[in-house]
């Protein structure tokens, strides 16, 4: 069962009269319970494509379906009950939490919105959720500016999970945090995968992609130049571009 399917999706931008094809007629499937990695350099269109999947960006042509139904109706996407099914984690943990709201309040608000709990119950649920993300009740009372980058990124994962989604789209979740915090966050994603969450992971860090993904799409200039099972891509890359990406991973010689 494919939970999300994208058929022949294109996104073009108009820049001072030039037409820029950010995403160029691509097809994509996310089978239920799998983790799909999308990898490519800056400007390859991977973030734009992730935004199309999450409904933040309307495709110029082509369509995206969720469980067989189109996500778009008119100019809106993921309306009604679908709204909570697909959630996104953004690259910048500093920008994705309201700086004037304590963490627990921000999460409780999202829970109240999506799960229909009352104020008190949503607060308890928020504390539980944050606890499972490794953020203590004490830290949950703090403002985002008082947390470390890794904690903030885990809080924004908690924010996304508060809607109880079936799909999580993570756009470069680890690129703004340091190595040990990254290991903690990836451990968290690993637990979520075991619980059956389907994940689309966008990153230029091949280590992260290799660690989490079942299936990998390699994107260049708006098209998928190669796709395949994770081990195949990393052990037997066919395209020169993929080979170049893999050879750029630092420290391969010093494992």
């Amino acid at each position: 069962m494919n939970i999300i399917e994208a058929k022949d999706v294109s996104v073009t931008f108009n820049s001072y009269g030039d037409i820029i094809k950010a995403v160029d007629h691509v097809n994509f499937v996310l089978p239920k319970g799998q983790t799909i990695g999308i990898v490519g350099e800056s400007g390859s269109g991977k973030s734009t494509f992730a935004r199309v999947l999450s409904g933040l960006q309307l495709p110029t042509s082509g369509s995206v379906t969720f469980m067989g139904n189109p996500i778009q109706s008119g100019k809106n996407t993921y309306e009604g009950a679908l709204r909570k099914e697909v959630q996104m984690v953004f690259q910048d943990p500093y920008g994705s939490l309201n700086p004037r709201m304590r963490i627990v309040k921000a999460i409780a608000e999202a829970i109240r919105q999506h799960q229909g709990l009352d104020k008190k119950a949503s607060r308890v649920a928020a504390l539980d959720l944050l606890e499972s993300m490794g953020i203590s009740a004490l830290d949950a009372q703090k403002f985002p500016s008082k947390l470390s980058g890794g904690q903030r990124q885990r809080a924004s994962v908690a924010r996304a999970l508060s809607a109880q989604p079936s799909v999580l789209i993570a756009d470069e979740p680890t690129s703004a945090i340091d190595q040990s915090a990254q290991a903690q966050l990836l451990g968290l994603f690993n637990d979520l995968i075991k619980k059956g969450l389907s994940i689309v992971l966008v990153s230029h860090d091949l280590g992260v992609i290799r660690y989490l993904s079942d299936y990998v799409y390699v994107m260049k200039d708006g098209v998928f130049v190669e796709s395949g099972k994770s081990e195949e891509i990393f052990n037997n890359p066919k395209e020169d571009y993929t080979k170049k990406l893999i050879s750029s991973i630092p420290g391969r010689s010093t494992k």
């Binding site: 470390s148 040990s180 290991a183 995968i193 993904s213 994770s230």
Partner: peptide, 24 residues
Amino acid sequence: IALYNSRIDLVEPKGQLKTINGQP
């Protein structure tokens, strides 16, 4: 040693990651 061991390229995909205890 803990920093070195927290490298994700040292473990198999979806294997157990060695994180550093606590926060700095």
